[in-house]
Nucleic acid binder design. Structure first.
Length: 816
RNA sequence: GCGGAUGUGGUGGAAUUGGUAGACACGCCAGACUUAGGAUCUGGUGCCGCAAGGCGUGGAGGUUCAAGUCCUCUCAUCCGCACCA
């Protein structure tokens, strides 16, 4: 059959559309697979990264559908966010129109790839119906105490005119526009993700074998659990007087209580209340106060770049175990938001404290010794070891001393063992128009109140003016003015909108529910309990922390609120590699992009899909190579051209394997090897490149033999295996030859794969010298004899020391 | 600095438990068909060597009958985190 990609692909795409071929069934007694690729932001056009992402998920979805599973493979749009507003500023288009036009266009592009999405479950997160339930979730979380407001110093992007979560700041720059981030004090809404820190950490264990290790490590580090001792330093009597008895003590946190006898000073964060008091009451020289102010101005990111700086605060505390007087410093590297904003400093055993002590000539006292790396004063000894100079703990191991010192503090009411996390609460307020409105109201009488559920959704006004400055919702003449749901008085609506990560934290649950229930329910519990969790999630590694951690958090919250029974959203995670051109990421600014549309036009979607799955395993980076694309195209043409070798049948012909020629039996073996490979590849790892290679080998082997039944059987099976990868051409050929009856689970005939004779390589001292073909049940002695005969040339004047036969693998003769 | 990953021909990449290194494809070379080919088909192709043979999975050691695979050290590249006490 002459191959015409455009004709074939149009035909089958419209067939699939007309027949709703890929809709999930609502029969929940069936075995299911939920296959999901991360939904796209509707930026305007699809790029090769999308093509790769959706081709992978589509191949998986098609495979399981073919194998008799009820498959949910949905698509939607992560459609709120800044680019829509930027487009509005630049081109004067309304964000809504820009967004929905883009969605329409990209939908057509995705359709041209022949992706088997369930179209009836598609939505955009900017749809009013989605906002309605999102606001409902927000209010539920608020009622549960998981949402609160606070003022804090936030990362502010001057270009995007909005705050950014810590997670959204990369190298001090905005993750989206890449401009330098500054700080600002602002009031905003926070989600108490820290309440779930331990839960999120514990459940990483459940993901261990099915998520890339790298992602789990990143999440673990991000949560950053550490155990240690929290205790208080009492101020010395003179200091108390100096501070007008306003303060008596402050607390510090340490993970190394075993080094406590090495404390020679303590350090406070520049924002610490005692530091503030000293400055405000001019208890320090003007010069010192100025230096402290300079520290305070810098944001944490800026501060991290600077060298260690400090000022002696001229006050003292008492060491809780030795009773000695210790000086107190302010130091720019002490973080206010962690461990109380104060540390005990052990220069001998902490690198930061060491550096600081060296700079300011503070005393260094060793309290740990270690056999392997002795303390010579040139660097801090941070390893665990044996205690020295440590009173009654001297001589103990670090581990034992830690326990006993903590016990001592606890028993005497001086401190306690606590757990700290690096994870911070998630700030979700954004000063933007194109986002989900936060359903909160500020009433001068009742304070902060949430909207009534019946009022949802709170929708965005459409008559807005988008300028580069300020929040259009705040500037709108009427939108924010409303009535207080509690007292009925006039009140003001919250004008901040939600971080878009809020939407992507639960969209996968929404898909589980039939559209008919979308008006009334966030999602249907029975449906989500059936479909969740996602059996295979596919997306970029760039979401390793942000999206994947938030989604895990939401899943747990929704479970705790009774909406579902699942505690982890994504059972298996595949992080696909980037698509590169000329060794770097494709990007418009580098001018090295390859347009998916033009590839599809020239070669067809099947070629694009085949190339993208063949060129590299999904997890690895993929280098775009135009002659590789030609190669993929050639294979499809060859496959298509050879179709006349098969008979038109409804079933695989019955073949007596024993009477076949060598070539035919070899071809059958290759065919069934490919089928086995297909089963393996889809059950773990998704190494499509090796599956495609196996298919190529099988086709090459088929083409070297003449038995028509073997051809028919082989072709019948090959089209089955290749359907998930190159669906259009496979449906076309299958419908004309087999009435599509080969597109179902096929039986793997194990006996075809069994060998009656085996080829054994013969190695001498581990070097391959020859090979022999023997019957499967040949004895070891016979095999060794044959091996010697075959390698006699290498055995002359040598004596054989050892004869090794590894059954059906090889023979190794060790000679001297 | 810490953590993670990767390193195999000219190129993309194969290689269950240690068991024929380089499958499959691209590229290249030769040939066939053809008015022509940037179409198609056939054969060849790790490196050195005329050959016998030798060498060969970033590098150096080690374990083993046998190492791409296991162990120790080391180099390079990429990614993530970055003063979290």
């Amino acid at each position: 059959m002459e191959y015409n990609s455009t004709k074939v692909e149009k035909k089958w795409q419209s067939y699939w559309n007309k027949n709703s071929s890929f809709e999930p069934s609502n029969d929940f007694s069936k075995k299911k697979k939920y296959i999901l690729s991360m939904f796209p932001y509707p930026s305007g056009r699809i790029h090769m990264g999308h093509v790769r992402n959706y081709t992978i998920s589509d191949a998986i979805a098609r495979n399981f559908r073919k194998s008799g599973f009820n498959v949910l493979h949905p698509i939607g749009w992560d459609s709120f966010g800044m680019p829509a507003e930027n487009a509005a500023i630049k081109h004067g288009v309304h964000p809504k129109n820009w967004t929905y036009d883009n969605i329409d266009y990209m939908k057509k592009e995705l359709n041209s790839l022949g992706l088997s999405f369930s179209k009836t479950r598609e939505f955009a997160t900017s749809d009013k119906l989605y906002s309605k339930h999102e606001q409902h979730i927000f209010i539920d979380m608020y009622k549960k105490g998981l949402v609160y407001q606070k003022t804090s110093t936030l990362n502010w992007c001057e270009t995007c005119h909005t705050v950014l979560a810590n997670e959204q700041v990369e190298d001090g720059c905005c993750w989206r526009c890449n401009n330098l981030v500054s700080t600002r004090k602002m009031l905003g809404y926070y989600l108490k993700i820290t309440d779930y820190a331990q839960n999120l950490l514990d459940d990483i264990k459940k993901l261990e074998t099915n998520w890339p290790k790298q992602v789990l490590t990143m999440q673990e580090n991000w949560i950053g659990r550490s155990e240690g001792l929290e205790f208080e330093f009492n101020l010395s009597d003179e200091t108390k007087i100096k501070l007008n008895n306003k303060f008596a003590k402050y607390s510090v946190f340490t993970t190394r209580p075993d080094t406590i006898y090495g404390v020679t000073y303590t350090a406070l964060a520049p924002e610490h209340v005692i530091v503030k008091y000293l400055c405000d009451n001019k208890l320090l020289s003007d010069e010192k106060i100025k230096k402290i102010k300079d520290m305070q101005i810098l944001g944490s990111i800026e501060r991290a770049k600077n060298d260690k700086e400090g000022v002696d605060l001229e006050i003292h505390v008492i060491h809780p175990l030795t009773g000695k007087k210790i000086s107190v410093w302010v130091a720019n590297f002490v973080l206010i938001e962690y461990g109380g904003g104060a540390v005990m400093s052990v220069p001998a055993h902490d690198e930061r404290d060491f550096e600081f002590a060296r700079k300011y000539n503070l005393p260094i006292v060793q309290s740990i010794e270690q056999a392997k790396s002795s303390f010579d004063g040139s660097r801090a000894l941070i390893e665990h070891g044996k205690l020295v100079n440590s009173g009654k703990y001297t001589g103990m191991s670090s581990k034992k001393a830690q326990k006993l010192i903590i016990d001592h503090f606890e028993q005497n009411g001086l401190g306690k063992k606590i757990v700290n996390y690096k994870l911070r609460d998630w700030g979700i307020s954004r000063q933007r128009y194109w986002g989900t409105p936060i359903p909160m109201i500020h009433c001068s009488k009742c304070g902060l109140v949430h909207d009534d559920i019946e009022n949802l959704p709170i929708t965005l006004p459409e008559d807005i003016e988008i300028t580069a400055k300020g929040n259009p919702l705040d500037a709108h003449p009427t939108w924010k003015h409303t009535k207080c749901p509690t007292c009925g008085g006039s009140a003001v609506r919250e004008t901040d909108t939600m971080d878009t990560f809020f939407q992507s934290s639960w969209y996968f649950m929404r898909y589980t529910t039939d559209k008919s229930m979308w008006e009334d329910k966030i999602f249907d519990k029975t449906s989500s309990d059936y479909w969740m969790n996602v059996d295979q999630y596919i997306g970029g590694i760039e979401h390793a922390i942000l999206h994947l951690l938030y989604a895990r958090f939401f899943t747990k919250v929704l479970k705790d609120m009774g909406y579902s029974s699942v505690d982890e959203p994504f059972k298996n995670l595949l992080t696909q590699g980037m698509v590169l051109k000329d060794g770097t990421k494709m990007s418009k600014s580098k001018g090295n992009t390859v347009d998916p549309d033009s590839i599809i036009q020239k070669y067809g979607a099947d070629t694009a899909r085949l190339f993208i799955l063949f060129a590299a395993p999904p997890q690895k980076e993929l280098e775009w190579n135009s002659s590789g694309v030609e190669g993929a195209y050639k294979f499809i043409k060859k496959l298509s051209n050879l179709s006349s070798n098969s008979n038109s049948v409804d079933f695989i012909p019955i073949i007596d394997h024993k009477i076949l020629s060598k070539e035919s039996s070899f071809a059958r073996k290759k065919i069934y090897t490919a089928l086995k490979k297909s089963n393996d590849v889809f059950s773990h790892g998704y190494a499509f490149n090796t599956l495609i290679a196996a298919c190529m080998e099988a086709l090459n082997a088929l083409n070297k033999q003449q038995n028509r039944d073997v051809w028919t059987e082989g072709y019948f099976i090959l089209l089955n295996i290749l359907e998930p990868i190159i669906p259009h051409v496979c449906w076309e050929l299958s419908s004309s030859l087999y009435k599509l009856k080969n597109l179902k689970q096929l039986e793997l005939l194990e006996d075809v794969l069994e060998n009656t004779s085996i080829i054994l390589p013969i190695t001498i001292n581990g070097k391959r010298r020859s090979e022999i073909e023997v019957a499967k049940d040949t004895s070891k002695n016979e095999i060794i004899a044959l091996a010697k005969e075959a390698t006699s040339k290498w055995l002359e004047e040598k004596s054989i020391i050892k004869e090794i036969y590894v059954p059906s693998k090889l023979v190794n003769l060790v000679v001297k």
